[in-house]
Every structure is written in structure tokens, then in C-alpha cells.
Amino acid sequence: MSDALLNPANPANVFACRNLHVFVKDGDQEKEIVRGVDLTVQRGQKHALMGPNGSGKSTLAAALMGHPSYRVEGEIWLNGERVDALEPHERARRGMFLSFQYPVAVPGVTVANFLRASLAARRGTEIPVRAFRQELNEAFATMGIDPSFITRYLNDGFSGGEKKKLEILQMLLLKPAFSLLDETDSGLDIDALKVVSDGINQASGPDNGLLLVTHYQRILNHVQPDVVHVFMSGRLVRTGGMELVTALEERGYDWLTDEAAVAEGSRT
């Protein structure tokens, strides 16, 4: 990557973080979960972040979105602008999006009302009912969700697959500049995985970027990443392309554990 592209303010970069550390309360102490991450996503790029269970992948994704449980040090950039001091809703309005691993249910709030409020917040203007309905119908058709879901309560009693489809449906509607997709593939059967992947591909374009957090290769066969990172013990230990995914499938993470340990040793 050229030096100019390493500048997080470069308009070619849709997202960047610099020297990012994430801490979580642990009794009276703080525990460091993310231990210094530098990441740059250019417009039009898809990045994959792979790592074993408990490596801190989900913490990283939630902290980037501004989850109040975490204390963050370092810089977060979105569209050439520092956003690490902004509230989560402000980051969302500027085009950051998080697809949750476990989307929460909000009983009593219909999918339609929620989506209308979200769209209005993202676009900064109320959407006329007729236009909203048409947009909604198209997105529901794309994601293969029954239109009757618009009157259901948000994620309330939804199956795992239905929740994940609704997350990606929101990605399609909100048209984020940068999406964090936290294990969007987990709990999906083969058919649902295909639908969800197609949705992600449809929502992706030359102007936006995404970071796909996953354990597994299978979604990466549908959503081809441009860059693959391996994340272990709170750090990016390796960055490469699809060949890295193949290597992980064949060898697991252990060989990287050794290398990470070596890298750690050489650093001190």
C-alpha cells in the first residue's frame, strides 16, 4: 500500500483505525481485549477478519460501533473523519453499520416502524409512506423474507436465520459506507447462507467497504474478500489474501499461535 493510502484521512479510504486498544471492566480492574490494531479499508474493498473463539473479534466490532461497555484508545476513521468521540447513533448516521452476531429482540416494536425510524435517521429526512413501502418490498424480496414480517415485532421469536437475513436487509436499506459484519454466517444453513451472501454482495459497491468477521471459510467462497486478516489474542497477526483462508482451513490456527508468540517475543 502506498504511503498516501496509509493516511486515514485519504478519501480513498472508507475506514481506518490506528493503534486501537479496547478495554473492558473486569471487577475493579480493566482487561485489554484488543491490543493495538491498525486497519485500513479502501473504498470498494471487502476485508475478512478471521480468528479463533475468544480472540476478541466481536469485541473489536462492537467497540468500533461505539458500544458503551468498552473503553477505547486510538483512532477510528470513517470517510476521512475521526469518529471515535462520536456516539453510536452519530457513527451510524455517518454511514457505519454493524450486523450483530446476536440481534436483540425489541418486543412491541414492529419491523416496519423500526426500519422507518432507522431510515429517517440515516437519511436525515422522513420517508414518504408510499416510497418506504416500495423500498421495503424490494428489499424483502431480495432477502427472501415473507412480507408479513413487517408487522412482526423486531427479532421477537425470529429464528437465527431470519434474524441474520433481517440484518442484511437493513444493510441494503441503510446503504452504509462501511459495514462491520459480525459472524453473519453463523447459524445459517446452506440456502440461507447463499441468500445472505448475495445480499451482502448486492449491498457492496465501489464506494463502500466492509469488514466480515468470521470463523469459517464457507461464507468467503460467496463473499470474496480482497484482504484477509488473522486476529488472535487481540492483535492482527497476519494479513494476506484468499490463500491465507486456505491455509487456515488446512492447518487451523495453531501454526499462527507459534508465529504470534515468536512475533511477540521479537517485539519485546
Binding site: 462492537a62 460501533m65 461505539g66 458500544h67 458503551p68 456516539e87 453510536p88 447513533h89 451510524a92 448516521r93 453499520f97 454493524l98 450483530f100 440481534p103 436483540v104 425489541v106 416494536v109 416502524n113 423500526f114 425510524a117 432507522s118 435517521a121 440515516r122 437493513q170 441503510l174
Partner: peptide, 18 residues
């Protein structure tokens, strides 16, 4: 719930009222 709604652009008061 509030974080989920905030991540979709809803301000605190709006999220609570929902």
C-alpha cells in the same frame, strides 16, 4: 436494546421511547 437501536442511527431518547 438501546445499543442495537443506536447502531441504526436512533438517538437515545428516540430509542427509549420506542
Amino acid at each position: 436494546q438501546l445499543f442495537y437501536l443506536a447502531s441504526r442511527g436512533l438517538e437515545h431518547g428516540e430509542a427509549v421511547s420506542l
